[in-house]
Amino acid sequence: MKAIVTVMLKSGVLDPQGKAIAHALGTLGFTGVHDVRAGKIIELDLAETDPAKAREAAEDMARKLLANTVIESFRVSLDG
């Protein structure tokens, strides 16, 4: 079962990379982009087949390593 962990900076934390991306989009001619925030996605290929257990394991991994909960929040989605 695949668990997909999406890690984003918490709102209120400055995201200069997001700002740089927004600026570049503007330079490319895209209008109407209010704000951009950039995060990361970590795909976990787990042996666990029970979805609840897989979710719990992924959330534990996110809290302990994948996300720095001082500055980042995460969400877990399951696939297959």
Binding site: V13, L14, P16, Q17, A20, N68, V70, I71
Partner: peptide
Amino acid sequence: LTEAGILPGALLRNAAL
């Protein structure tokens, strides 16, 4: 030390990148 929780806070990407 901040990642290990021995000191508080975090170090982010430099503001001007």
